[in-house]
Amino acid sequence: MVRFSDAGLRYPDPSGGEGDETLKHLSFTLPRGSFTWLTGASGAGKTTLLRLMQCALRPTSGEVEILGVRLSQAKREALPPLRRRIGAVFQDYRLLPYLSAFDNVALPLRLAGRSEASLRPDVAELLRWVGLENRADSLPPQLSGGEQQRVAIARAVVARPELLVADEPTGNLDPRQARRLLALLTEMNRLGTTVVVATHSEELVAAFPAPVMTLERGRLVAFGHPDEAPDADPAASAWNNAPEQGPTGTWDDGPEPTGTAWDNRPSPATTTWDDAPDPAAVAWDDAPGTSPGPASRGGAAASPHGTPDRRPPGAPPDTPPYGMRGRRDG
């Protein structure tokens, strides 16, 4: 669950004093397993709101509760385990430039203790799904902006987080790739992940109807389903009692995701969420100076190229990759 209670945030001004309020008196609840669009003009506060949900910031007023943890009261050492339960897609990608596409996607699983043998198929399948199976060994500087964005998306979802926040994840994608991404996010939502997606795309919101939060100058001005009349008081609206379900609708050129083996595959005993390093900290500040590279994956057998298709038997070509493991249920 994500709960904001009269939450606000001020960034400090250059002189060290208090700056203007970036977010003001936000009160809302996102039920567990919900899917929510976040909209608003540039500068409305969408990225700052997502940073609070990622536990990258603490509110300067009010309270923010993320997955049962109150940020204003949480000790510093409690935040890394919480962040490991959250996946994030950033506007600026934040890929490690000295790691290949494969190794960037594999990083959260390696930090969580997954063995190379168990993580390789999951990473390869996600790279196939985002159309980068032939760029697995490329470094980020060798990839286009859209390709880097797809790597960032794959990295965010590979560990099947409990909460996924995405800041303009389709901004550099063509329409077909955008539709494939949304099919993947909605399937994750169907399996229980709470998803929040910031977007300027009215087409995506219309194609995948789901509750919409609208920010304006740091305030929540609307919170409801697109086909409902706006509520005068978002904090007291029916959103707080919204059913725990994701968006509806299908795309013209892709099948609607169906249940698969992703639901039933056991989580490996080697995955230890509470004791693993913090990906949010390690990935940017403390990551190893060299990439493990294809050779460290065990030669030809470890290469992501030629990995058997891990979709269910008879699944159509656009079926999302449901074989990923490692998420803690409950």
Rank of each mutant, 00 (worst) to 15 (best):
R3L: 15
F4G: 03
R10L: 05
P12F: 02
D13S: 03
P14Y: 05
H25S: 14
L30A: 14
S34V: 05
T36H: 14
T36G: 08
T36L: 15
T47K: 11
L52R: 08
V64T: 00
I66P: 00
L71D: 11
K75W: 08
R84V: 02
F90G: 09
Q91S: 08
L95W: 06
A106Y: 07
R114I: 05
V123W: 06
L127M: 10
R128I: 13
G131I: 04
N134K: 15
R135K: 05
A136C: 10
A136G: 06
P141T: 07
Q142E: 15
I153M: 12
R160V: 00
A166W: 05
P169N: 12
N172W: 14
R179I: 09
R180Y: 08
A183P: 09
T186C: 07
N189T: 12
V196K: 00
A206M: 10
A206S: 13
F208V: 14
V212H: 13
L215M: 12
R217M: 08
G218Q: 03
V221K: 06
H225E: 14
A229K: 05
P230I: 04
N241W: 08
E244G: 08
G249P: 05
D252R: 14
D253Q: 07
P257I: 07
T270N: 15
T271L: 15
T272H: 15
W273N: 01
W273T: 12
D274Q: 13
A281R: 12
W284P: 10
D285Y: 15
D286W: 06
G299Q: 03
A302S: 11
P313T: 03
G314M: 12
P321C: 10
M324V: 14
